[in-house]
Computed example of a mutant assay.
Amino acid sequence: MLDKHQAVQSHQKKSSRQKLAKVLLATLPMLTVLGATAGLSSCGFQLRGYDTPMLFDIAKTAVIIEDNRTAFPLKLPLTRRLEALGLDVIDNMTLADIANNSNNVGADPIAAITVNNIRFKRYELVGVLTEIRLVLSADVSYQTIENGKPVTLSNPIQVERSYQYNEASVSTDDQQGNQIRDWLYDTLARRITDQYVAISLPKVAPASANKSSQTLKSPEKTTVIVPSS
């Protein structure tokens, strides 16, 4: 009986350890993401191949988005992505406010991301199942400073995704369509952030390019030994 009782206890302890290991493995990716986000917020970010972390020339960025139901859901994911890069995001300024700030001597410069004309387009291909293609478009302008002068770049961005919808189903709500809309807003925010990073990065050559240049300028001496006959 004693041996059987000990075996049961050993099995329970092993089961508990396995459950604990599963919990730790499940939480590990989230801890990694949180740690990476904290690192980005505190010390900028570093691209692979570059010697030093990348810091934006302008720390403050105003996000200017139209005040309507279609545009509003973009503000939160875009703000979160910019803040994750260590930027101080301002959401209560206009382009006129930024221009006045630029004229004030000694004021900290403020960059701007302006998003206008946010719209959805829905395309349907009716069959046994309705094929739906949902497109989210926006006109985006980036205002920053280069060599001490204001620079404005504009670029339209479009993201899309297709899915199938069974109109003959019991549920008449297009729940998948609502999820796709959320995904499109997040994807648009990522595209805007990626473009802003590309525009605002300091013009620094990657480490690999510097090493290649040094190698070409200062080639190593090669000694050739000829065997005696």
Rank of each mutant, 00 (worst) to 15 (best):
L2P: 03
K4S: 13
Q6S: 10
A7K: 14
A7E: 15
A7H: 11
V8W: 11
V8Q: 15
Q9M: 14
Q9W: 11
K13T: 12
K13G: 00
S15L: 13
S16M: 07
R17V: 04
R17G: 11
L20N: 09
L25S: 07
M30N: 07
T32D: 02
L34S: 07
L34G: 09
G35F: 11
A36T: 10
G39W: 08
S42A: 15
C43M: 12
F45C: 07
F45H: 11
L47C: 03
Y50F: 15
T52E: 14
T52K: 15
I58F: 05
I58M: 08
K60H: 08
T61E: 03
A62S: 13
V63R: 03
I64E: 08
R69W: 00
A71L: 00
L74M: 08
K75W: 06
L76A: 13
P77Y: 02
T79M: 04
T79V: 07
R80M: 10
R80L: 13
R81V: 02
L82E: 04
G86E: 09
V89Y: 04
I90F: 01
D91Q: 15
T94Q: 08
A96R: 12
A96T: 11
A99T: 10
S102M: 14
V105Y: 09
G106E: 06
A107L: 04
A107Y: 04
P109A: 14
T114S: 14
N117K: 12
N117W: 01
K121A: 13
E124I: 12
L125K: 13
V126L: 15
L134M: 13
L136Q: 04
S137A: 15
S137E: 15
A138D: 06
D139W: 04
D139H: 06
V140F: 11
V140K: 11
T144H: 03
N147I: 02
P150H: 05
P150A: 07
I157R: 07
Q158Y: 00
S162D: 07
Q164E: 10
Q164N: 11
E167H: 00
S169A: 15
T172D: 14
D173V: 09
D173N: 09
D174R: 10
D174M: 10
G177Q: 12
G177H: 10
I180M: 12
I180R: 06
D182C: 02
L184M: 04
Y185K: 11
D186C: 02
T187F: 03
L188S: 05
L188R: 05
A189L: 02
R190I: 01
I192Q: 02
T193R: 03
D194C: 00
V197F: 01
A198T: 04
V204K: 09
P206A: 03
S208A: 12
N210F: 07
N210I: 09
T215Y: 10
L216H: 05
E220T: 09
T222C: 01
T223E: 08
V226I: 15
P227F: 13
S228P: 00
S228M: 03
